[in-house]
Structure formats: C-alpha cells, structure tokens
Design a protein around this nucleic acid. Structure first.
Lengths: 354, 354
DNA sequence: ATGAAAGCGCTAACAT
DNA sequence: ATGTTAGCGCTTTCAT
C-alpha cells in the first residue's frame, strides 16, 4: 500500500475524473507535453490544485526510464575536498534538473561496490565516482555493464575507457617540490593517507591515481636534483598510523626531515599539530607545503603555501560530462585535466643550518 | 524505453522463464520473502546470476510504497557543520538500509521549497531538514500534508509539532559570554551570517532558531552583568556585508569592541582574517570565542576557545528519529536537545587597558 | 510450495 | 485535441 495514514495519494486518474477528462489528457496537461487545449488545461490544473495532486516521479521513471537522479560516490563528505566537489556537481546537476544520491565509501572498495549496487538498483541516470581504487576497477565495470554512464573524478582508472576529470597533479607536485629544493631543502618527506602495502617503490601503482601522480612528481623532481633514492621519503598509510604520529616520527631525531609535502589539507593539519606538539616552528624549523587551499591555510601562523585545485570545478565539470552522456553523446571518452595554482604564503624558508 | 543501448534490462520474468518457474515464485526467491523450496530457490538464483539480473528498486517502491530513501535538505554541504551532520545522518541511514538524496538550500526558502517538492515527488520515505527559516514554515507543512515523516535538525520550528534535534545553544551562548565577561570585557560583539531585516531588537525572532537562542543567551548574559542595551552588539547579515568587512568595521576606531563571539566557525575564520589584516593580535588586542570545534581551531596561533557541538550526533540522532517514524512509531513529537561542550584554548585574555 | 492475475501511477502509441 | 489501451518491473492477494 502507499501512503501512511490510509489516505491514498491523489493520482492523475483522480484529477482526470474531477476535471471530467480522460487520464491521458490529464496527464498531458499535468506533464506539460502533447497537445491540450487551453480550456482543458486550466480545468485539469484547477482540479489538481483542488485535490492536492502531487506527481509521483517514480511512476514517471518507470515509464520513461529516466529518473533525473545522479549517483555520487565519494570517500567521505566530511572531507572538505569531497564536500566542495559534491557542491560543484550538485549545482550543475540541479540546474539541469537532476538530484544527487550521495554515498560515502570511506575509500573502501567493498563499501563502494555496495553503494554502486544500490544506486544502480535505484536506476540513477548516471554515476559520478571518485573511485576508492584506480586499479581494482570491477566496481566501475559493473556500472558500465549495467549500461549506465559513468564519470570518474579526482582519480582516473587508466584501464577504463571512461570520461574522467582530474587535476594536473604531477606538475603540481613537481612545482611544490622544486620550491622546497630551491629553498635549500634536501631531506623532504611526502605524506599521504592513501593505503599501500609496504614501503613505496618506484614500480608500485598507488590506489589513488592522483596521489600516484603526486608521488611521481615528487620523486622525479628530487631525482633530477640529485637527491639519492633512499632520501626520497614517501610516506603513505598516514591514516592508519595517524598523521600526527607519523609526522612526529619524521621530525624527531638526527635524521629528521626539514620539509614536508602534505598530500591534502587534512595531512597538513596533522603536520601542523605535530610541529606544535614538538615545539617546532614553521618555517624556521620546518617548511611545509600542501595540496588544496583549505580555508584555514590563510589564517595559521604562518600561512601555508599551497597548491590550490579547482575543486568546485572538478565536480562541476564531472557533472557536465555525465549529463552530456545521459543526453546521448556517444563520442569517445574524454579526460579533462584541470590546472592547479600555487599560492605562496609563508611556510617555506631555508632549512636551519646544522 | 529503458536501457541505453537497446539492451533491455533483465527482469524477474526473464529469470522466472529461465528457471522454469512462475514470475511470482521467482520474485519470492529473489526478494527473499514468502515461501520457496530450497531447490527452486537455488534454481532461480542461478538463473538470475547467469542472466545478470539486477533488481529494479523503483518497481519495488511502486508496489510497496517504500523507497528506502531519505531526503536531506541543508544550507550548504560545503559548510563543515552541514557536512558533519550529513555524515552522521548518512551513517545511521545506511546502517538501516536507507540512502540519502541531498539538497542544498543556500538558506533560501524558495530553493528549499523546490527541493522539498522534488524529494516528495521522488517519494522519499521521510525528510531531514535544517530549515532555512524557523518561522516561515509552509515548506515544512507541505511535507506533513503529504503524509511523510519529517525531522528538523539544528533548528526548531516552534509552530510545528514535529520531531526535532537541536543543541543547547542558549546555554552555550551564556557560557561563552560569561567567559568573556569574566575576563573583563564589556564591549563584546556577537556575529552571525543569518539574514535579518534591520538591526536586531529584542522582540525579533531570527530565522534560525539556533542563532536566535544564541543571541538571546548572549544578550541576557550581558544584561545580567549590567551592560547597557546599546552596548549589547548583535551583528547579523554578515554574509551580505562580508564577515571580514564587518569585523574590520567593529574593530576599528575608538568604539572598537574588545571581544567577539562568532556564531560559527566560518565567522571565526573571517574574524581571524580581519584581525590579521588590521594587525591586531589575538588575544592581546582582541578576544575571540566561537561555536563549533572546527578542525583548524586548534592549530591557529593562538588556538580558539570554542563551544563544541556534537554535530555528527545531531545528524545521527535526527536520522534515528526519522527512521523510527518511518517504521511506524506514532508517539508524540520528540525534541532532543544535545549538550554543547566548552573547549578552552588561548584566544581569550583581559582587554587591553585603555 | 507454487501459479495466475491484478495493481502501483505514470507515459506512449495508436486510434478517433 | 482527446480517449483507449498497453505496458514499465515489481509485490501481493487469492487460488490451487
């Protein structure tokens, strides 16, 4: 049964009866399609108003096959990156008449798979996914197999021919690293919370293509500067150990690093806390640069030098691509790469003389 | 037509035919209800697997009347408060088998009304709303009229008998204000971005009941301390003028305030920026307290003294109440008031001697 | 335990 | 311009 209090919902039929026309005519007037005379339309609309008719979008979806709903699967809406991207996507979606069903994957492929399954069952017209893994892509294949358009954002899945929106992470990482090198640093650590088994090795592919690119940009820049392999410190799994713990470990002892590249603003926050706990001053004792121009990076002392990403636009562009596909664009898959922008503040200085 | 590439979706009927049973039996096996012999079930499941059957949740909703989808309408997902509350709600919802359709209202009643209409049309099983206005509640009435359960969070609507989850804002504001008073401040400003016509007057009701409560807590505490009416500075509409502009205005000249209560973390950020721009030092030149323990409030110099709200729990509790209603609880409306917690850091000091 | 058939509220041919 | 009718994919009596 539908309805909650026994009160049946008003349907097109009811409106039709009240207006004294057929169901089809009422539907045409209500749905604003087909041909209806002005007089009849008015009559129908009046009847609808009077009865308190509320269209059932689900029934419409059943017959048209279009739900005007998009699915979006992200790591965690509490992460400001995803919140911004989601807002960007939502704005574009709404403007085009679509709603968003939101799912958090917590970067877990299992949870992601489940979320995708549910959204597919709810017949979303297409999906926006920041995949938990750029390599384990069976989750994404499911979507394609179901015949639904898919757009990846923030992370690519090289194995998959599908529309993708990413940022120029490798270049961003190179620039950030160069900045540190130019200031005189040689012992620099890159920190990300991405999960990875064992220490990073050059041939490894990280589960997030964006972090992967950043790491490569970092490593190759150090290499070009003659920093020997063992001193290209790449630290992953920061979420497991805890960013603050990890940072403390890197900052203590004789072998402490003098600069850190934070892979996102949450990492930067952890580093800040660690520095404060150890009574290290930025930038005098430690230089810090990070990805993402989080709102607070301008109000700390010192402000943090960051590589800003057009996050809102990443989400918006992804939604645009998706809607284009839904509307029937059959062209070859597109990869949109958005530029990052350096915002220099005051968190970088030459390393302390030893 | 459904499907994209002409490829029709596999339905219960198809599975039934392949398994050599009736549609009803296949549906029972697939949907795991009714009575089916083990042998038949296996046969059906195998057929489903083989054909790549994917249930159509919409069709299910059509016949059961339950969509297993909740609507959530908030101001802006980019606002960390809403992001956290949404996450709390999502976790509870998912655990109970519900999805979330997200809509941003930008605190605009018009947009909110539209979002609610769409969600109602999509037959969400219930709605979670942080209402753009606590007084103009026709939007919310629509939901009740449609017979769908509604839970308000963050803000109440006194006129409406409906489940509500809020924080103890008045007490929080009193405590924060007392703290400032105790440090010796007399010229204190309260800043919120809530929209309001004209200057705040005691009899006014603000559109956000939570801000309303905070303002009252602020005003009554000043009054009790003997601060005369004209010096109980309540500044609203900060979004329109710009928080930073407003803060600068309050901090310059002979009549400058010596302390500020920020109604949320975004306001606090603006105040921080303004202070920095004016070269005012916190807490020496200006004391600052704020609502919400945003992640960055611990890493600024100094750290900000805040009144923390259990934001995640606000969303979670709201979802719990809603799901209870959906499951049929017919008890009287409940209002759940969650306590706030003071986190003292270093942004408060006595005012500069004049 | 299984099957036949009706119905959820809408759209879309196909008449007229 | 309007009406008739047949679905969309599922659940749910009601039989058997």
């Amino acid at each position: 049964m539908s309805g909650d209090n026994g009160r049946r919902e008003v349907t097109v039929s009811d409106v039709a009866t009240t207006a004294g026309v057929s169901k089809a005519t009422a539907a045409r007037a209500l749905g604003d399609y087909g041909a209806v005379s002005a007089a009849v339309r008015d009559r129908v609309l009046a009847a609808a108003e009077q009865l308190g008719y509320r269209p059932n979008a689900l029934a419409k979806t059943m017959s048209t096959g279009r739900s005007n709903t998009l699915g979006i699967v992200i790591g965690d809406i509490e992460n400001p990156f995803f919140a911004q991207a989601t807002r960007g996507a939502a704005d574009v979606a709404n403007a085009a008449g679509f709603d968003l069903i939101l799912s958090n994957s917590d970067e877990d492929a299992e949870i992601e798979a489940n979320a995708i399954g549910v959204q597919l069952a709810k017949r979303v017209d297409g999906l926006l996914v920041a995949p938990a893994s750029s390599v384990r892509i069976d989750n994404l294949r499911t979507i394609i197999d179901a015949g639904r358009p898919l757009v990846l954002f923030d992370r690519a899945a090289p194995e998959l021919q599908v529309d993708t929106v990413i940022a120029a992470n490798r270049k961003g990482a190179r620039d950030l690293t160069s900045l540190l090198l130019a200031a005189g640093h040689r012992r620099i650590a890159f920190i990300s919370s991405i999960a990875h088994d064992g220490p990073f090795r050059r041939a490894d592919s990280l589960t997030s293509s964006s972090v992967d690119e950043r790491v490569r940009g970092f490593v190759e820049t150090l290499e070009a500067a003659g920093v020997p392999e063992p001193e290209r410190f790449v630290h992953l799994n920061a979420r497991i150990e805890g960013v603050e713990q990890l940072a403390r470990r890197l900052l203590e002892g004789d072998a402490a690093v003098t600069a850190i590249v934070a892979s996102d603003s949450l990492i930067a926050l952890g580093v800040f806390r660690a520095a404060r706990a150890l009574d290290l001053r930025i930038p005098d004792d430690l230089s810090l640069v990070a990805f993402d121009d989080a709102d607070w990076t301008g109000v700390t002392t010192p402000g943090v030098t960051v590589m800003a990403q057009p996050i809102h636009e990443i989400g918006a562009e992804a939604a645009r691509l998706l809607i284009r596909r839904i509307r029937g664009d059959g062209g070859p898959p597109v990869t949109s790469v958005l530029e990052q922008r350096l915002i220099a503040r005051d968190s970088v200085a030459p390393p302390r003389a030893v």
